[in-house]
Computed example of a mutant assay.
Amino acid sequence: MGDHVDVGGHPTWVDVRGRPVGDAQVVLLLHGGLSNCDLLLDALEPTLAARYALVAFDRRGHGRTADTSEPFHYEDMATETIRVLEQVVDRPAHLVGFSDGGIVAILVALRRPDLVRRLVLIGANFHVDGLRPLELGEDGPQVTAIAESYAQRSPDGAEHFPVVVEKGLTLMRSEPTLSTADVARIGAPTLVMAGDDDLVELSHTCALYEALPAGALAVVPAASHLVPVEKPDLVARLVDDFLGSAWPPATMMPIGRAREAAPAQP
């Protein structure tokens, strides 16, 4: 059931589903840009709700959370996420981030590793140069669907949508600017996932995976950047398997992972 919660002095839409937060491991779902928390909840709740407490929230200017006059920055979104972890979750959680939400998850893991159990990064880039060119016509079906979803939820009204789009595109064109050395500081086991025709360059996705000390990789065939929408059951199974398995995995012919010295994590 969703409701507005004061997060850093701003009414923020938070939705909690599945098992009670105090009785199970928590999975915090971080939505993509120009989206809202319903996207990942719809994809993952049927599979994960029986085992986990699912917490999702709409970032400032998205979904049911009102915008402010400030521009969008990923570091500010990470601060917002850390506050949700501290106020709503109140303990370490698994972070599942899609697109912009994956970037936010990376920043949270770098700033507050004490709050992160495992990461799932879906269609995420660590540097702005990792994105392929994207052309979205103003009257195209994707923009129309996003605009309708925004109008149905936003307390700012449909007329504010162009402002959010401009702030979102400005963000995407200028951030993030992390390096593989930054990524290498993430110690939490991390699943990197992407569609085989993703907005993020496949080489960039592989660079993200290869830079991680404890990484796993899933490239979903016949899928685009919107893989959680296109193949929700498969994405949910991959996430469920990753979160529920020991780390490092006990494969039959380890090569790169043969050098991992960390003890298995439940």
Rank of each mutant, 00 (worst) to 15 (best):
E86S: 10
A43I: 01
L95G: 03
E70L: 13
A93Y: 03
Q87P: 04
F72E: 00
C37V: 13
D67P: 13
V84L: 06
V88K: 06
E75N: 05
G102D: 05
F98H: 12
A66V: 11
D100P: 10
R60S: 08
G61Y: 07
A49T: 07
R51T: 05
L48E: 00
H62S: 12
A78I: 06
M77T: 13
G33T: 14
D90S: 12
S99D: 06
G61T: 11
P71S: 02
G63P: 02
E75W: 09
D100Y: 02
V104A: 13
A105C: 03
R91I: 04
E70R: 14
S69Y: 06
C37S: 15
P46W: 07
I106F: 12
D38G: 15
R51S: 03
L44H: 04
L41V: 02
R51V: 01
G33Y: 09
Q87M: 12
D42T: 15
A93F: 02
P92D: 10
F57E: 01
I106W: 05
Q87T: 13
A56W: 01
D76Q: 13
V88A: 02
A105T: 02
D90Q: 15
H73I: 09
P92T: 07
A53T: 10
G101P: 06
A53Q: 01
H31I: 04
P46D: 04
S35C: 11
A78F: 08
C37G: 14
L39M: 14
I82F: 09
G101D: 03
E45Y: 07
I106P: 08
A93D: 06
S99G: 09
D76V: 12
G97M: 02
I82E: 13
P46E: 05
D67I: 14
A78T: 07
T68H: 03
P92I: 11
P92Q: 02
C37H: 14
S35N: 12
E86C: 04
V84A: 08
T68A: 04
T81R: 05
R64V: 06
D38Y: 14
A105Q: 01
T79L: 13
H73R: 14
L85G: 02
R60T: 15
Q87V: 12
R83E: 12
D100S: 13
V96H: 04
G32L: 05
R59T: 10
S69F: 09
D58H: 01
T79K: 07
Y74A: 15
G33L: 14
E80G: 10
G101N: 08
F98C: 01
V55F: 06
T81Q: 06
C37A: 15
V55P: 00
C37N: 14
A93N: 02
R83C: 05
A66M: 08
V89S: 04
D67Q: 12
D42L: 14
A93Q: 02
